[in-house]
Write a protein that binds this DNA or RNA. Structure first.
Lengths: 166, 166
DNA sequence: ATGCTTATGTTATATTGTAACACGATATCA
DNA sequence: TGATATCGTGTTACAATATAACATAAGCAT
């Protein structure tokens, strides 16, 4: 999450293996807490999603799962795993891309705020904190009971801006 | 837009015919300005979208267009009209629903902020103003050049809260 | 072992969206 | 007036994403 801004999570040369390990450990722990099972399939799907900091489509996940296996897994199995992971908050769905990405911090209930680079597809989850004032006002003014927040901010990431000029 | 909050645009008993008329007039004017043509098909699609304050799917629009006609129109025609209207900012796409809704104010370039009722599907476009501070900070901290903002806040609208209890 | 619950396999199909090429209408201009 | 250029639509086929419905298997509780 983009709170400690000195070293953004998905910086091109961060230690990504650490991301994956952390995510899987968190997942295992969360499953223990909630008495849910992180089965082989679910873990494989989660690992594939964490393979990058870019949203991945369900069918891409299917293809990756198929690599080196005799049998292709069918869509429902992937979608079930995705549903499970979404339910637990271990991943998010990026609606504008029909794709899925790992959640930076499944431990607290929180919403889905992302910066998405239209050039390299990088998606960075950001701290929704700064937006809660405005959300609160909106809720008060509109009479809506807001239960889910989803924000997708698209543009160019720093790295792409630097390498591509403008 | 939810700035003048005394009389929310989509209140159950507002004068909806006025909404439709206003939308179509704005559309005609905008097309004149931008030297674009609001053809019969495009106008019909826009009118159908403005038929309610609820997001409508492309295939629903197709079905509506087919009513009372001999020939069904094919998907590409509808999607072309939708693309045209999106391009001009006359409608928005609600990504979480794969559906389209009229834009309250196509005259200024602006982003896509919506309150969506999960019970009755009502979608109210809201003023993004209150969020721009946080967006600006984010942009500065992240190095992203944010070009498009899309926010979908889901929950229960006042009317549903009142009629359904909780 | 027997049954219960949960996870996965399997088949078919629904829903949303596009590619590619053909046709037609309208505008422009020699 | 007719050539031609541009834009919008028609038509067919298909891609991409997601789900329904039912069958099987795997784990676990008595």
């Amino acid at each position: 999450m983009l709170s400690k801004m000195d070293a953004p999570a998905a910086h091109p040369d961060h230690d990504h293996q650490a991301c994956i390990d952390a995510a899987l450990n968190t997942a295992r722990e969360l499953c223990r807490e909630k008495q849910q099972k992180l089965t082989k399939t679910r873990e494989k799907v989660l690992r594939l999603i964490w393979d990058s900091h870019r949203p991945v489509g369900a069918y891409t996940i299917m293809d990756s799962l198929a690599e080196g296996e005799q049998k292709r897994i069918a869509p429902p199995t992937v979608y079930r795993a995705l549903d499970f992971l979404l339910e637990l908050g271990l991943i998010h769905r990026i609606n504008s891309l029909n794709a899925y990405i790992g959640c930076q911090d499944p431990s607290h209930e929180h919403h889905c705020y992302f910066l998405i680079c239209t050039s390299c597809n990088l998606a960075i989850e950001v701290d929704p904190g700064g937006f809660q004032g405005a959300v609160g006002k909106l809720q008060k003014n509109s009479g809506f009971d807001i239960r889910q927040q989803n924000m997708e901010l698209s543009g160019m990431c720093q790295h792409c801006l630097e390498t591509a000029g403008d």
